[in-house]
Structures are given as C-alpha cells and as structure tokens.
Design a protein around this nucleic acid. Structure first.
Lengths: 195, 195, 195, 195
DNA sequence: TATGAATGAGCCTTCATTCAT
DNA sequence: TATGAATGAAGGCTCATTCAT
C-alpha cells in the first residue's frame, strides 16, 4: 500500500475515534510510523487531509449505491435496494459513514462546498427513482426531492442511532434495523400508493 | 445573569460550534470576559462543565416532553404530541439537542455513563405509551421498546438532518418536517393497526 | 487545637511529603478544611509559614537536647547523651528534622538569617561540652568548635541516611543506628583521649 | 556543545538550586535560549530529564571511585582511597552529588526504583573491600555491608554539611574535611583492628 | 520522497495572593 | 476571625507547521 493510502487509513480511524479536534498529525504519523513532516508531502495540511477523507468516503458510498441498481428493476424494487445499500454501507463502513455525516457543513467554510456537496447526488439518485415511480403510476408524491429527503432522513436516523451506539442494550441490533428500515420503506410506499 | 450561567451559555455555543475537543476553557473565558481561572470556581474542570451542559439539556428536553402529555389523551394522541414535542425541542433548542445527540461519546472521556443515559428515560416514556396503545387494542406491536426506538430513530433522523443543515436548499424546512414527522407517525400507526 | 496550630501541623506533613515547591496554600487549606484565605490571617504569606515551621522545629530540637543534659554528668556522658538526643529527635520527629535540614540557607535569602541560624546554637552546645572536656583533661582537641561540627556532621549523616530511606533494605535500622552512633562517639573519644 | 548537553547542564543547576518541584521546563528553556517545546525533542518529559540527570551523575561518581582503586593496594589503602574519592567527588562536583543524594525521592514521581538504586553498587564496592579486609585478617567486623553503610553514612554527613553550607563560617573548610574524614576512617580502622 | 530540529500558539490546570463582605 | 470570588502568572505538555538537509 502506498504511504498516502496508509495515512488515509490511519487518519480514518483516528478521526472517528477521537474527533476532528483531537485527531493530530503527530498521532497519525506515529501510527503510520513515519515522520510528521512526511504527511505534508502528501497532503497540504490537516484540512486537506480531512477533505480527502471525506471525498473518498463519499465516493465509496456512491459506488455501493450505484451497484445496487439494476436496469430491470421496477422503481419500488430500486427504492428498496437503495435503502438496503445505504444501511449496508452505514453498518459495514461505520467509519466512512461517520466521516461523511460527522463533519458539519457550517464548520468548514474552508472546504470547497461543491466538493463537499457531492453527497447530494446520492439524494438526487433517490429522487430520480421516486420520480420514475410517479411517472409509472406506482407512486404518488407531490415533490419527489422532498420525499427523497424524507426517506433518507429516516434511514439516516436509523443508521446513526445504531452507529453511535445509542440503542438500548436490551434491543438486538439486527432485528431493530430490519424492522426500522421496513417501517420506513413500507410506510412510504403504502402511504403514497393508497391515496 | 450569574457568572455560572454565563459560562454555561457560552460553553453551549462553543461546544456545538467546535466540538468538545476544540472547545477550550480559555475561549470560554475570553468570550465571557473573565479570567480562565474563574471558570474553575464554578466547575471543577472541563469534564464537569460538559456534564453540567448535558444534564441541563436532558432535563430541558424531559421537561418539554412531560408537558406535552395530558391525562385525557388516548395513546395515539399522546404519540403524536410526543413526536411534536421532540421535534419542537430539536428545532427550537438546536444547541441543546446537539449536545444531547451529536456530541460524540468518544470525545467525552471519563464520563459517568449512568448520568449520560438518563436520556433513555425519554424512550421508555415512548415505550410506555406504545404499550398502553397495545393494551387498549389501538396498536399492535411485538416489542414496545423496540418500536419506541424505531419511531424515535426516525424522528431523530429528521431533526438531525435539519439541524445539521444537510437539507437541500431547494426544500422548504417547515413542510419537510411536517411531511416527515407525519410520515413517521402515520406510517407507524397505519402499519400497526391494520392487519 | 487552634487554627494556627492546625495549619502548622498540616503544613509540616505537606512540606515533608511534597517539598517546599509543591506544598501549596490551597492544599493546606483543603486539608485543614478552611478557606485558603484564612491562612493569611495567621501567616503573612507562604514564606512566613515556612519560617514558623522551621522556628518551631528548631525550638523543639533545642528543647530535647537541653533536657538530655544533667548537671551531675561528666563531659563524656554529656557527649553521649547529646548524641543520643540528636538521633532520637531525628528518628522520632523525622518531619521536623527534615524541615530543619531540608531547607538550604542559600535558597532563602528571604529568611532573616539570624533566625534561621538559631540552629547553630545546638552546635555550640556541643562545642561547649567538648571544651569542658578539654579543660577537665578528659579530651584533647585543637579546636572544640571544629570538633563539634565533625561529630555533628557524622551524626547527621547517619540520621539523614535513615530518614531519607537510603539504607539498604537488607540492613536492620536499629542495629545500624546503634553501631554507627557508637562508632562516631567512641571513635571520637578514643582518638582524642589516647596519644 | 549539543543542545541536549546544554539542557542537561542548565537543568542540573536549576534542579540543585530550586529542587525538582520548582525546576521548570520553561525556565530551563529560557536559560538555554530555546523554545520550551525543543526540550521535548530531546527528553520525553520532565521525569525523563531528571532520570537522565541522575543516571549521568551516578555514572560519574562510579567512574571516579573505580579509578581510585588499584590492584596492588591492600584493603585499608583501598578504603582510604575510596573515602577520598567519594569526598573529592562531593566537593568538586557538588551539583551532581546533590542530585544523587539531596533531591528528595518524594519529589520524583513515577521513578523506576531499580534505576535509582544503581547507586547501591557503590556501597557494595565498599562492602567488598571491608570483606576482603576481614578475610585477610586486617579488619574484624560482623557485617561488612552494614559497616560499609556506617562508613558511608558518616562520609555523606561530612560532605553534605559542607555542600549545603551548614558549616559555621568560623571553620575553615579544608581542615574540617580532612579532620572529619580522618576521624571516620581511622576511627573505623582502629576500632575494628584493636579488640 | 523523506526527515530531524525547531517554534509560537495554544491546551488544561494550579498557584499565591488580594479584595469586598 | 472568616470567606467566596477573582486574577495574573506560571506549570507541563501537544499541536500544526516550516525549514534546512
């Protein structure tokens, strides 16, 4: 693995483990077993390192979602698969998920907004599918984009509750996720197809 | 206002704005316009200050939810009011909401878990109502506690998306929240009362 | 006990336990269970507190030595008793002993030298006895004051080695002290009476 | 001179002058005329700096004592030379002597005891010589180790009285030391060879 | 591409002391 | 006699970053 990737890998852990404020170039360097100075050969500064981290995480998520979609599927199947993919990514790559959603837009005026907002494409993907469902008559919503955000917000709630370990210990994780995602998707479909 | 309250007030902003790691006693002191030393007359150390912040935020939320409930209401009305109260708190006291839900546990060292988990009482309140609904036959769920977490997780998703400004700028906030909360609650009720 | 004495008592422990540098007015106040401010009602400042500590320790030592001497004793008996008294004080009041000998003259230009040097009277007491022995023909030394310091220096070595716990753990303390003191005194007497 | 050595040099003075508690990294840095941070490039922290100071001082003393011993010497000559070497070191390298013997163990937190106790080898050297004297019949002692400590304790008394300037100003240093050391050694030999 | 040395700024915290009550 | 509030100074230490090599 290249040094650059090593640095990214270690940074990812540290960022999630200690937060952006306490993640330090020195600690990264130490863990990668390289001089602190060397990091600056690959990343201009701490902010740029964080940016790289976010970008790669978003790319990873987008990639996984893309792979969920198959041409033959109808809109509702796509919806379900997208939701599954999203949750799958969150639970199996919690560090990357956290990186995407931990860093708050207003905290980082330093970050080029257009790069950071690549994540919005994900929601637009969702919106497109909902739109397709409306066109095909299997769904009925007023504003596909708003509905996409509605669904996504709920899924995000489910994922973040699990990842940040706020679930009561008496509740088994998998059944909870299954029930919750089901609730989100079926609730949405039912409501929007019934009239 | 007392110095103690000033400190809490300023800390609250800083904590939300910069995270626990970067919120510094000195910054707080400077903003309150006292010596850094003075903070230690009111709070033993940084951790205790954070604890006070969290405790007061949780108390505030609990208070608001309690006030939502009226004896005459049936379980479904209670459910709706509780959801409304939760969202109301999140949107009107975003800093306190963030302190409760967005400050990462990893960033808070040496934190008495039992105090932090007082928040779980809120979910048990929700579970009790769902349980009551089951007893009265207006709801049908297998595990009231898990269902409570399901509902709450989704509401949390809605709140946190708005608070952390992840909503697409083309989407008007209020309608979004209204639709999303409605979706969560109605979806839950519909699903659980049909069959 | 008066507050003043409480403060002295606690200071004594802290001074010996942590050294002058780390002994703090706050810690004293806390241990005495009084406000830090209150100490200043009894002692002008930290230096004066230390001075009081030294003065009382020296007075205590002088008192014990005085009590060792009886009018009927011959010079050699007096010598032996003085040595015993000195060692007794050191081993039974190690805190006070340390206070007297821990604080180094040049470190404290703040302290009125004449007060601090009261301790020298102790050595002059010794010198007087040696002088008396010479007059009576039972001892023969060139310079009684220097001889007094010679004896005292050796006794101090023995005491300080024990107090500061530099003795090998395989060596039993009491026999060691007995042999060492005996060595100092008998060596001195033998040497000075022979020839 | 290297920065590391400069730091050690300055630390040595400060440690002896102010004690470990009041010796500060910042003061050292200021005197060496570097940033405080730079010290941490050469020593992990304050404790490690102290450790280096002690280790080098002990090594220096051990070196000087070793050089005093010649193969041809008989045990009594060795004893005398060792005593001379010890006093020589104390009076000519008072700072190092103080670091070894006067810095109070309580002021040195978290200190690896085995390293600190390397100094005990010095006393075992002494004990070996006394033992050798016994074997050759020129000395008669019950416990060579205890006798070694007895001799050393008295020499230490002499050295420390001089170094810490507790000698009466009317007493000339050199004759005092000569008489005192002579007293210790001759007293010991006489006592132990007579019977 | 890699590093060791260096630093100014900042961190949390403790200190001795003062002042108004 | 006693205190709570306040503070400037200092403490040990870590940080992101630069520079010469």
């Amino acid at each position: 693995m290249s040094l650059r990737e090593d640095i990214l890998h270690v940074s990812r852990s540290l960022l999630v483990k200690e937060g952006f404020g306490k993640m330090s170039m020195r600690k990264i360097a130490k863990e990668v077993d390289v001089s602190a100075t060397s990091i600056y050969l690959h990343f201009k500064n701490k902010d740029e390192l964080l940016l790289a981290l976010i970008e790669s995480s978003i790319a990873h998520l987008a990639d996984i979602l893309q792979k969920q979609l198959k041409d033959g599927d109808d809109p509702i199947q796509k919806l379900e698969k997208l939701a599954d993919g999203f949750i799958y990514f969150a639970l199996n790559h919690p560090q990357e998920y956290e990186i995407i959603y931990m860093v708050r837009p207003e905290e980082m005026p330093k970050f080029p907004k257009e790069k950071f907002n690549q994540i919005r494409k994900v929601y637009e993907l969702l919106a497109d599918i909902i739109d397709e469902g409306c066109q095909k008559g299997v769904l009925q919503v007023e504003d596909p984009l708003m509905s996409a955000y509605t669904v996504w917000a709920q899924l995000h709630g489910v994922a973040s509750v699990v990842i940040s370990k706020r679930l009561d210990t008496r509740i088994p994780v998998e059944p909870f996720v299954k029930q919750a995602v089901d609730h989100v998707i079926q609730g949405f479909i039912t409501q929007k197809t019934m009239v």
